[in-house]
Design a protein around this nucleic acid. Structure first.
Length: 312
DNA sequence: AAATACCACAACCGCGCGTTT
DNA sequence: TAAACGCGCGGTTGTGGTATT
């Protein structure tokens, strides 16, 4: 059946979002909650595709997301997860609740892929050949096969994640939120989305203010900003912000994506109950050496993935 | 100082899946 | 049951910024 485009191409604006548009979107979502994206453009007057609105919210405006500055632990975790899960960025992002799939994907494509390739070229550590690493091979496999492989190789997954998580034991999780506000002039550190919104609101809701938001607005003056989730409670913020809908990468982290959720539940052995931080589940899972969860029964036809720690 | 190459990131596009009618 | 719809995911592209020549 021919499917109509998600939005008519006529009159739909493209390209970078302006602060005004961000403000409109944030204001609307604050009032109505995320979701029902189809209605967002019409209700807000935004000349944007519903997809574009969702993407903008999910990747940039949603509270509790961290941008840029991937630390070493996160980097290694991403590499490990990519080796395990392939290019399933949403699933990978579910283990890094503050990161969006898009951010991780970009970071992988621009940094990690090259890094791995360089390492493979240098040390011959590559166990899979090609430039994509082990994950792609699995990703290229049929979905069912891939899922089964993940299940059957649960031990490898555990080991890999344990390796990743044990790199910086003093840092409990990647969820540690850097202190805000961003120092003025800092170009490498992105302000959190909440901070951006706060600046936006401060800059745009104040009559006569310039288009540039004030630098490092520690205090959020507008009501909109004050009711936003603070970055420190990123998970809760994301969870609550998306409580009434199914969108958002962090929402996906908890229970959303079909694949992500199954992966999460399979790996973490926990349901999507109260949406606790995925890392807690992960840590529990990793620390639980009992390992009698039935995965062992799936260990037939194991196809070893290889040890992702080879990468380092 | 200007031109060029490279890099990083934001955003778009197409497709698939699940839900609704 | 099948079509229509809405949403999310992954791949790709366009653009601005930075480094190098």
């Amino acid at each position: 059946m021919g499917r109509p485009p998600c939005c008519d191409k006529m009159g739909v604006k493209k390209g970078p979002w302006t602060p005004e548009e961000d403000l409109m979107l944030v204001s609307y979502i604050q009032e109505h909650g995320p979701g029902n994206w189809r209605a967002v453009p019409t209700n807000t007057g935004l000349m944007r595709c519903s997809k574009s609105c969702r993407l903008r919210w999910t990747n940039y405006l949603r509270p509790g997301i961290k941008r840029g500055n991937f630390n070493d632990q996160e980097e290694k975790l991403i590499v490990h997860l990519q080796a395990l899960l392939g290019n399933r960025w949403a699933a990978i992002a579910s283990y890094l609740p503050e990161r969006t799939d898009n951010d991780i994907k970009n970071y992988w494509n621009t940094h990690l892929k090259k890094k791995l390739k360089k390492m493979q070229d240098a040390g011959g550590g590559g166990h899979d050949g090609g430039s994509e690493g082990a994950g792609v091979t699995k990703a290229a496999a049929p979905k069912g096969q891939w899922e089964r492989r993940l299940q059957t190789d649960i031990h490898t997954a555990r080991q890999a994640l344990r390796d990743a998580l044990s790199l910086e034991p003093s840092q409990p999780t990647a969820m540690a939120v850097p202190a805000l506000p961003t120092p003025p002039g800092s170009v490498t550190t992105y302000a959190s989305s909440a901070d951006n919104i706060a600046r936006l609101l401060e800059g745009w809701m104040r009559p006569g203010s310039s288009s540039k938001g004030p630098e490092a607005s520690g205090s959020t003056s507008s009501t909109t900003a004050t009711t936003r989730q603070q970055p420190q409670c990123s998970w809760d913020g994301a969870a609550s912000a998306s409580a009434s809908h199914s969108g958002g990468a962090a929402g996906a982290a908890a229970a959303q994506t079909p694949e992500g959720s199954t992966e999460t539940s399979k790996l973490a052995g926990a349901g999507a109950g109260g949406a606790p931080p995925a890392f807690s589940m992960l840590e529990n899972w990793l620390l639980d050496d009992g390992m009698g969860h039935g995965e062992a029964g799936l260990m037939d036809d194991v196809v070893p993935l290889g040890d992702p720690s080879e990468f380092f």
